[in-house]
Simulated assay, not measured.
Amino acid sequence: MSKPVAVTGAAGFIGRWVVDELLNQGYSVISLDDFSNGRRENIEEFHNEPRFEFFEGDIRDEAAIERLINQETAACIHLAAEIDVHESLERPNDHFEVNVVGTRNVLEACRATDTRLGLMGTCMVYDMADSEDGIDETHPVKPASPYAGTKLAAENVAESYYHGYDLPVTILRPFNTYGPYQEVGVVPIFVERDLNGEPLKIYGDGTQTRDLLYATDCARFVVDATFSEAAVGEVLNAGTGEDVSINELARLIASDGRNIEHVEHHHPQSEVPKLLCDPSKAKEVLEWEPEYSLEAGIEELRTWLSNRSNK
């Protein structure tokens, strides 16, 4: 059996798909999650897979990280994080402890074992942009929430380990990802409300745009970038290169006659008005391109949610 790939946050939405992609590519996986954001049912189908090992643990616990990452680890994909923008404004310390201190623990374990690291960042670190060319990796950063600030801090610490210790680190910044097993996010919320015959509710005026990346495309990007020698020391975006307004997204998802309502935004200061990815660097470095159109991804998600509700 090949050396295992360590995955933090394996029971989360993206973590579940990364585990699936690793197994499909023939890797063995050792993983952990504390189920603060992840769900046990997300990884149930993997438990009979001999190449999959899981234990419950918290990235703030150094002993758990040392158990996960050792001399036999082929690589680590670090996905575990506090991820809620609105909650970060209410509870910033929680985000600091998990996203910064937890990442430090992962980096120290990787340094001790010379384990390559794929670090999940976020497109939310970027400053606002109105350009139709999209945001590339050289675009200025300006985190608008403690969530984005702590994720950027984690990236900076990871980059310091690359420059200071020559640790093989790749920083991954996928744009807004959606798909099956996602509990929060505008696309699954809209689709589920539509399936239930409920009105679709939009926070604010709905003119904000997002570049929406399907889950399997994101997972393939994460795995390929983590193992790419050309990507070591790099920051890489992943997206479709097309954005859609939340108003347009609601109209695309809503069935005939379904109401669309606008409601007050709880934290408008944290809302980024336009997110459009320039994925050209990932294409150049990894030969990676998304396979799913927005329409195809929404249909896949709609089918999955329908099947789940009928079980």
Score class of each variant (00 low, 15 high):
residue 1 M to P: 15
residue 1 M to G: 15
residue 10 A to Q: 03
residue 15 G to H: 05
residue 16 R to A: 14
residue 22 L to H: 08
residue 22 L to A: 09
residue 24 N to D: 15
residue 25 Q to M: 13
residue 26 G to R: 04
residue 34 D to K: 14
residue 35 F to H: 12
residue 36 S to E: 14
residue 37 N to W: 00
residue 37 N to H: 01
residue 39 R to T: 10
residue 40 R to Y: 00
residue 41 E to D: 14
residue 43 I to N: 07
residue 43 I to F: 00
residue 44 E to S: 14
residue 45 E to I: 12
residue 51 R to K: 15
residue 56 E to W: 06
residue 57 G to N: 06
residue 57 G to W: 03
residue 61 D to F: 00
residue 63 A to G: 13
residue 66 E to W: 00
residue 71 Q to D: 15
residue 76 C to F: 11
residue 76 C to K: 05
residue 76 C to D: 03
residue 77 I to F: 13
residue 78 H to G: 09
residue 79 L to F: 05
residue 80 A to T: 11
residue 85 V to R: 12
residue 89 L to D: 09
residue 91 R to V: 08
residue 92 P to E: 13
residue 96 F to V: 14
residue 98 V to G: 01
residue 99 N to C: 08
residue 100 V to H: 12
residue 107 L to F: 02
residue 108 E to C: 04
residue 114 D to L: 01
residue 114 D to S: 10
residue 116 R to V: 07
residue 118 G to T: 03
residue 120 M to E: 11
residue 124 M to F: 05
residue 125 V to D: 07
residue 129 A to L: 04
residue 130 D to A: 04
residue 134 G to P: 10
residue 134 G to F: 02
residue 137 E to K: 10
residue 138 T to C: 08
residue 141 V to L: 01
residue 142 K to H: 12
residue 145 S to H: 10
residue 145 S to M: 13
residue 147 Y to T: 03
residue 147 Y to M: 12
residue 149 G to V: 02
residue 154 A to G: 15
residue 156 N to G: 09
residue 157 V to D: 14
residue 163 H to V: 12
residue 166 D to H: 12
residue 168 P to M: 03
residue 169 V to T: 05
residue 170 T to A: 15
residue 172 L to W: 12
residue 177 T to L: 06
residue 178 Y to V: 11
residue 178 Y to Q: 10
residue 178 Y to G: 06
residue 184 V to R: 14
residue 185 G to C: 05
residue 187 V to F: 00
residue 188 P to I: 02
residue 194 D to Y: 00
residue 195 L to S: 00
residue 199 P to G: 02
residue 199 P to T: 01
residue 203 Y to K: 13
residue 203 Y to M: 14
residue 206 G to T: 09
residue 211 D to W: 01
residue 213 L to W: 01
residue 220 R to A: 10
residue 222 V to W: 01
residue 223 V to P: 05
residue 223 V to I: 11
residue 225 A to V: 09
residue 225 A to H: 11
residue 225 A to M: 10
residue 238 A to Y: 04
residue 238 A to T: 08
residue 241 G to Q: 04
residue 245 S to P: 01
residue 249 L to R: 01
residue 249 L to K: 01
residue 249 L to P: 13
residue 250 A to D: 05
residue 254 A to P: 13
residue 257 G to I: 02
residue 263 V to F: 00
residue 269 Q to K: 14
residue 270 S to D: 04
residue 270 S to Q: 08
residue 272 V to T: 13
residue 278 D to A: 07
residue 280 S to Y: 01
residue 282 A to K: 01
residue 284 E to M: 07
residue 285 V to H: 09
residue 289 E to A: 11
residue 292 Y to E: 07
residue 293 S to N: 06
residue 294 L to T: 03
residue 295 E to I: 06
residue 295 E to L: 00
residue 303 T to Q: 12
residue 304 W to D: 15
